[in-house]
């Protein structure tokens, strides 16, 4: 009698095999999904870190954060602050030219130029009250006669899909210029299927102003 598999054996083998493969696939698929989830969540963290680092560096390089941008609030008001178009962070960076002899400067001329930089937020969909926000950075250069060069102004998108972003200072007695600028930034995944399980990360940082007004 010729040796071989019976049809029943073959079917049992195939069934076991398919069960095993299915289990394996499900395991692999779940692991892959989890890994993708982790990567996506980490990209939220990365976006937060990168954006805050960018703003921090910008502020540290600045000379003067303009009064009122952002507004100073009482400590108890901080939790009530919400993202809005009027909440702006505006500062100036000066670039000096020490090779110039000040006695040769023409009337109205100074030995520096400056860039006025503004961070501000725009809703991605004006009609949607729950729309995520986009963080923009505009730059307006001034010439050495303190006049703005409007034709050279530019706007650059820093980050999209922002759930919340607030700039503020705290009203602190006897603190020059408010001392610190605070930034609260919150990002939330928008691609997750389960709304309740969307990954969110919210960071609040403070940046000590370093520079000073040249005049």
């Amino acid at each position: 009698m010729r040796k071989g598999f019976t049809a029943v054996e073959l079917m049992i083998g195939l069934i076991i095999m398919s069960l095993l493969l299915t289990a394996l696939y499900r395991t692999f698929s779940a692991t892959r999904r989890n890994a993708a989830e982790i990567v996506a969540n980490h990209s939220i963290n990365d976006d937060l870190d990168r954006t805050l680092l960018r703003i921090t560096d910008d502020i540290r390089e600045s000379n003067l954060i303009l009064p009122g941008f952002p507004e100073a609030v009482e400590p108890m008001e901080v939790s009530t602050l919400a993202t809005n178009k009027n909440n702006k962070l505006k500062f100036e960076k000066f670039l000096y030219d020490y090779s110039k002899d000040p006695s040769t400067l023409a009337a109205g001329e100074v030995n520096y130029t400056k860039n006025e930089i503004t961070y501000y937020l725009e809703p991605e969909d004006d009609q949607d009250p729950n729309s995520p926000w986009t963080l923009q950075r505009s730059l307006l250069p001034y010439n050495n006669k303190k006049q703005p060069e409007n034709s050279q102004a530019s706007v650059y998108t820093i980050l999209r899909g922002i759930r919340e972003c607030v700039f503020y200072r705290l009203n602190e007695q006897h603190t020059s210029g408010g001392g610190n600028v605070y930034i609260r930034l919150k990002l939330t995944r928008i691609d997750a299927e389960d709304e309740t399980k969307k990954y969110s990360n919210e960071i609040t940082i403070s940046v000590k102003e370093r520079g000073a007004n040249p005049e």
């Binding site: 003067l64 009064p67 603190t175 020059s176 210029g177 408010g178 520079g211 000073a212 007004n213």
Partner: peptide
């Protein structure tokens, strides 16, 4: 303003 600098002008 060019001559009077208050606390927001950061001349501490």
């Amino acid at each position: 303003r060019p001559w009077i600098k208050e606390k927001n002008d950061k001349m501490s």
